[in-house]
């Protein structure tokens, strides 16, 4: 039997992650309009927290990128910062969303602090991997998996927030951007993973283990729903 190609092995993992997220009770509750305003706001807070520091994370990935992948990651980084042709700073879009959701100054400050705390945690957590190449791969997998998910679900999430949380379309531009732009990004993300694996000569067995470690939890449920109470039928554990 022929082993799965590296690319389809990774894509299978991404697809599993996205499917579990899409089928999770919280996603359904939010999409079907069953969540309370406070629950929508908790979700918005978590989503903003997750993505506010994307430029910082991308700059880390840019630093460790192999030459073939570097231009692409650099372009993503500039786009994220609003320094490309489109000139839309993505973190600003998240603040627009937060403001539309009625987050006051204090809540927005807490949001900024929570996002910063994630960077701090990344730096203070004792490193389990032996070298930067494994850490870089794990971060790259997570980032590209998010892009992959957003390219498939961002517009649905945006629609749900418009329909059930009453947010105006101007406040949901972040979702438009990630659903359209990231279809391309998601494919390019997989290219960059392949380039990374080749450049650092990472063996198939190590890739499998790093995939397993990176995706031992559902990364979307962990980031977006962690603070929301467990719902009946939730399958938080083991994806």
């Amino acid at each position: 039997m022929i082993a799965l190609s590296t690319r389809s092995l990774i894509e299978t993992q991404y697809a599993d992650q996205v499917r579990a997220f899409e089928r999770s009770p919280w996603f359904q509750r939010l999409e079907q309009g069953q969540a309370s305003p406070q629950e929508y706001d908790a979700f918005i807070f978590n989503l903003c927290q997750t993505h506010l520091k994307s430029p910082q994370i991308l700059s880390f990935l840019y630093a460790v990128a192999p030459p073939e992948a570097a231009p692409q990651i650099k372009h993503n980084l500039l786009e994220e910062l609003g320094l490309d042709e489109a000139a839309i700073c993505h973190p600003d879009l998240l603040y627009v969303l937060a403001t539309a959701a009625g987050f006051d100054r204090e809540r927005q400050t807490r949001l900024a602090e929570a996002a910063q705390a994630q960077i701090r945690q990344l730096c203070t957590d004792p490193l389990l991997f032996g070298t930067m190449q494994e850490l870089g791969l794990s971060v790259l997998l997570e980032v590209t998996c998010f892009e992959w998910m957003l390219s498939r679900l961002a517009s649905r999430i945006g629609k749900a927030l418009a329909a059930h949380r009453g947010l105006p379309s101007e406040s949901l531009i972040w979702f438009d951007h990630h659903s359209e732009v990231d279809i391309r990004h998601a494919e390019e993300g997989l290219d960059s993973v392949e380039q990374y694996l080749a450049y650092y000569e990472i063996e198939a067995e190590d890739l499998e283990t790093i995939l397993d470690i990176t995706f031992r939890e559902n990364i979307f449920i962990k980031r977006y729903f962690a603070d929301l109470p467990a719902l009946a039928g939730a399958t938080h554990e083991n994806r």
Partner: peptide, 10 residues
């Protein structure tokens, strides 16, 4: 799977 993780962490 767990064993391989632990091996990855040395």
């Amino acid at each position: 799977k767990h064993a391989k993780r632990f091996k990855q962490f040395a």
